[in-house]
Design a protein around this nucleic acid. Structure first.
Lengths: 256, 256
DNA sequence: GTAGAAGTTGCCGTAGCGAGAGGGTCAATC
DNA sequence: GATTGACCCTCTCGCTACGGCAACTTCTAC
């Protein structure tokens, strides 16, 4: 009726160290501990261990397993939440795998030839932006751009098209908000600018000061003004004001 | 030309702590360290950092990145190997996600009704096996079976069908090997038994002694003999001999 | 001279154990 | 009674890639 630790370990296919660990963290205590310190396990411990291993196989964390077995929280709802984590991680790995495949294609010289002209244009635009940044904000800003750009080195034409479409959609919403007379510093405007901030932040490690400075660029640089104001030539100054308000009110930016 | 640590950190969107860590592990040393201990980075460090971050985004480990940048090993081949790891992990998470979904279906009562009869038969067979194990090898062996069975609690009918098909295929190959007059203790036979061992081991944490004992069951228990010898009634004793040889020669099993 | 910003080293914590070191306990055997 | 070998115990370090804090020094500005 009582099994020693290595006996249980063999039956369950885990190590004795693992069982000691589970004891240590309070996940599976032995039925009894004899005076010499030996751990002894019974049937109910085996049943509990069985459920532990089942959940562990699903990548549920040990504290989570403990919570589930304690009934702190319905098994079904816990599993549903866990499922979201697992699928999110799987999707992330899926994207990484796709990126690696593209990178390998690049390395093997099957270059981005079909869209060469597009990428030449992209590089030219980027060089111009780098020059502008250097002129306005100095050497370091240009370096920042270069590092950020390197992270999209593996992007394909369709990635850029997708990003451009997302950008146009966002500018469209901003434009409609402006046209409905909303103040650029109003909460409603800032909520949309938050998306703009997130999008910029995802590509480029901006701090509040840099985001604030971006307003100057959008308003003052002809190239940027052209991009932002393509559909609505009054958008650049409005967005610049909204960005400044966002930096100040939501990012706690203080003018130096 | 020289950037301070927090300056580089801001440009690259990482923390100063991260840069110190990279210095510590020898992944990215500063261009110079002044007498007060301050780290100073130059352009070439920025370029290296850019490549580091690119690979880090692909989940390449820091030592691996170091090896790749040192040119120890072609970038392409390193990435190909990494790709296999990533896709394997993604597939694992994919299977886990599918398992969780099935488990949730079960929990919500949409039980395995359509195949109820099949599962009743499975449970009956398993109960009989448990009884046999208990009789032959004692209580503990029956517990082992129970723990192992719990791990297939989420299997669906098609999982079982797949496993059964795999089993039949394996028995078929073993049978053809036997019929061609191969000795059960020959390397050729043991190579196929290795697959049998792997399959058993994946489901059931067998040690060499348990695997050796399985031979007795296959030879002596009517139920097991029926399964293994379904297509070839001379297979059970031959396989039993091969299993014993495998346990002794490849798993270093010694008779007590 | 003194504040504040920015730099340094160093240590603890993370998840889930693996791999020892160093030392008791138990059953069987000589 | 002593030895042997198989178990068992409790430490502690190591692994990833840093985050976060403490304690201290240094630079810069007023």
């Amino acid at each position: 009726m009582q099994y020693s630790i290595s006996h249980v370990a063999k039956m369950a296919g885990v190590s004795a160290r693992t069982l000691r660990h589970y004891d240590e963290i309070g996940l599976l205590a032995p039925a009894a501990v004899s005076s010499n310190g030996y751990r002894w396990y019974g049937r109910s411990q085996l049943r509990r261990l069985q459920r532990i291993l089942l959940l562990r196989d699903l990548d549920v964390s040990l504290p989570q397993i403990n919570a589930i077995l304690a009934g702190d929280d319905g098994e079904a709802s816990a599993l549903r939440r866990h499922l979201m984590l697992v699928t999110a991680e799987r999707d992330r790995l899926d994207r990484i795998a796709a990126t690696i495949v593209r990178t390998l294609d690049d390395l093997e010289g099957q270059d981005r030839l079909p869209d060469e002209e597009f990428f030449r244009g992209l590089d030219a635009g980027r060089a111009q932006l780098a020059a502008t940044l250097q002129e306005r904000f100095g050497d370091a800003a240009a370096s920042t751009l270069q590092i950020a750009a390197a992270r999209t080195a593996h992007w394909t034409r369709s990635d850029y098209d997708q990003a451009a479409a997302d950008g146009r959609e966002l500018y469209g919403r901003l434009s409609r908000t402006r046209q409905s007379g909303v103040d650029p510093a109003s909460p409603q405007a800032l909520d949309i600018v938050a998306e703009h901030y997130e999008a910029v932040h995802a590509m480029w490690p901006v701090d509040p000061a840099a985001y604030h400075a971006l307003a100057d660029l959008i308003e003052g640089d002809a190239q940027q003004r052209g991009v932002v104001g393509a559909e609505d030539r009054h958008l650049p100054p409005w967005l610049a004001a909204a960005i400044r308000a966002y930096a100040i009110h939501r990012l706690d930016y203080r003018r130096p």
